[in-house]
Every structure is written in C-alpha cells, then in structure tokens.
Design a protein around this nucleic acid. Structure first.
Lengths: 194, 194
DNA sequence: GTCTATAAAATGATAGAC
DNA sequence: GTCTATCATTTTATAGAC
C-alpha cells in the first residue's frame, strides 16, 4: 500500500512539470499543490530530491500507458476502410490518455536521455508494431504499397502530428475534427497504390 | 544597427531555453554563454528581465521563419508524384530550419499564450495555405478526395509528426529516412480515391 | 558597455518538536 | 508523517567604479 500523500505529490509534480517544465517547477510549489505546507520540506519525507520525484512520475505514467494498451476494443470488421477509421480514432484516444507522457517527453527530452529512450520504445516502437498488425488485419491485402514500413511511418507520423498540433494550439490544424481526420487518413490508406 | 552583444545574448538565450526551458534557464547562464561575466548583471544593460529576452528571442525567430518561406525553389514539374516528393522534402527541410521556433513552442506553449497564437498562425496556418496551393499545382486534378481540407490536414500532420518524432528520439520512427517517408506520403496523395 | 560588489528574494534541503 | 524554523545556495536585479 502506498502513502496517499506520496500519490498526491506525484500528481502535483506531474501537473507542474507539464506546465512549467522540470527546471521551472519548485519543491515548494509541489508541496503546496499536494496540500502540504509550502516550504515545509515535508516533501523530503517521501522523495530524496526533485530529480527522484521526476523519475517516479515518469515510471508511473509509463506503467499507466502499458495498461491503456490492452483496453482497445475490437469490433467486428465490416468495411475495411471504416474499420481503419475506427482504429485511428482509438489511436488518437490513446494518445490523449498518454498525453502527460508525451508532454513530459516534449519538455524534458535531452535532460534524462535514459528515460527518453524508454518512452520512445514504449510509445513509438510499440505503437508502430501494433499499428502494423492492425493494418494487416483491417486491410485484407495488407498495406498495398511497395514500401510498407514507410507507409506505416506515414500513419504513425500523421496521428502523432495531429495529436501534438492539437495540443499545442488548442485546436486541430485547419479546424478539422478527429473523425474527419481519421476518415481521410483511412481513405488514403485503403486506396490502391498509384 | 544592433549591438553585437545583444545578438550574442539572444543566441545564448535561445540555446539555453531550448535545452533547459524558460524556467530552467538563468540570467547568469545566459551571461556566461554570451561571453559576459557570469552573475555580473551586464545582461540588464540590454534587457529588462528574463521574460523580455524570451519575447525578443521569439520575435527574432519568427522574423527568420518568415524569411525562410521565400526561399523554396520551384523546379520544373515532370512527374506529379515526384514533384510532390520533392515538395515534401523541402517542407521537412523548412521545419528543420524553424526547429528552434518549434522547440520553443513545444516547451513553452501555455506560458505565453499570445506568442503561441502568433507562432501557430505563422507556422501552421500559413503552412497549410501554401501546402494547399502546391498540391493544387502538383496534382493537376487537385487533391482527389471528397474532403480536401481533411486531406491537407493529414499531409501537414504527417510532416509535422515525422519531424517532431525525429527531434524527440534522434531518429525517425521505424528508422525510415526522409526520402522514403516523403515518397510514401506522395504515393498515397497521388493515389486515386478509394 | 562591462566590471565588482552587493542587496533581496526564491529555492533545495535539513534538524528537531509534536 | 507533518509542522516550524533554519541554512546554504542560487538567482534576479541594482548601484557605482572604470
């Protein structure tokens, strides 16, 4: 059983690091948001340093992300193109759930290279592998293209880019909603090669 | 004519803010990297505060980005699909040149909402407009799709996502090089609608 | 325009009472 | 396990000599 205070500190640290970055986050601020007396140093009964809490935050988010992976529902496949659209919407949903991890990566890549590598492996590589499997499944012929891996990269890049642009500007590029985006992406994927 | 020291301070601030974020960057560190005596406060002969230098850095990068816009070369259009590939590679190149701006946005969006909006307008909206014009030009029939704006969003998202993933992990997703990526994206764009 | 020196505040971290 | 109190350091910012 973990201390509830420890969990609140993790929540507070996650929130503040996403907003102000690691360097811009203060232990005092974490204490305050966690309901502890600001500047009291009570933080240090739970973590040895600011860096340690940052690593703990990342570990927790990585575990959560692993859990989300298993929750995808698999409806019956009717139209391949529609199945793709649904799949892409689920991917966007997944990205929204791991947004904290993505934000941490976007902010602090370079400060903790070891953690960056692990996030990369967990999110991108794993995402590509699963995406490949699903494309094979939803498009009976497999990706119709002479460079399937490049095509996969296009899919993953498009989903990631759409998600990040939305996060940065608060709206999607060109004000295209997720369902329109997913449908368009599915359409070009299902199209025969030029 | 601007002071060379002022320019060096801007260079130093850009470098450090990209590495450590605004909150993690100190005036002392800026002075040191700019060749001034660390902790001397000479910084304050050029800028009133850390926030002011951050805004000045962003202004300068925005002006630079505007300049890059005009440098695209337009070779003769032979094969439409190959023209698209070249165009996408140029876009990735452009993104690499405005990477500082993208990094600043990725790190500090939310702290300076007014600047975020301006970056968004300059990079994304402008990028979409130009991309649309070029797609119209390179694909004689125009984007063959029943939702051209959604298709544009897919293109811009894919390019942005590819660029950002490369920046975050130091390599492209699935280790697909830019030319393969651009070719694959061009192929699906040039394909007839499903 | 840069330096030395320094003030004033914020910050990371510790000690000890409860 | 939290608090008050405190310390050492870092950091923002200013004053004045050169």
């Amino acid at each position: 059983m973990v201390s509830p205070t420890r969990a609140r500190i993790l929540d507070a640290a996650l929130e503040l690091i996403q907003r102000h970055g690691f360097g811009g986050t203060t232990v005092t601020g974490i204490e305050e948001l966690a309901g502890l007396s600001p500047g009291s140093g009570s933080f240090y009964r739970h973590f040895r340093s600011k860096e340690e809490v940052f690593r703990a935050v990342l570990e927790r988010e990585l575990e959560r992300a692993q859990g989300y992976r298993d929750e995808f529902e698999r409806g019956p496949v009717a139209d391949p193109q529609e199945a793709l659209t649904r799949r892409f919407l689920q991917q966007l949903d997944y990205m929204a759930r791991v947004r904290p991890l993505i934000n941490l990566l976007a902010r602090e890549h370079g400060r903790f290279p070891d953690l960056t590598d692990r996030i990369g492996a967990a999110l991108v590589d794993q995402g590509i592998i699963e995406e490949a499997a699903h494309l094979m499944r939803d498009l009976p012929s497999g990706p119709a293209h002479d460079d399937p891996r490049a095509l996969l990269t296009v899919v993953v890049s498009a989903l990631t880019g759409y998600h990040l642009l939305q996060g940065y500007f608060g709206r999607s590029p060109s004000d295209v909603a997720p369902d329109r985006f997913a449908a368009a992406l599915a359409a070009v994927m299902a199209a025969p090669p030029a």
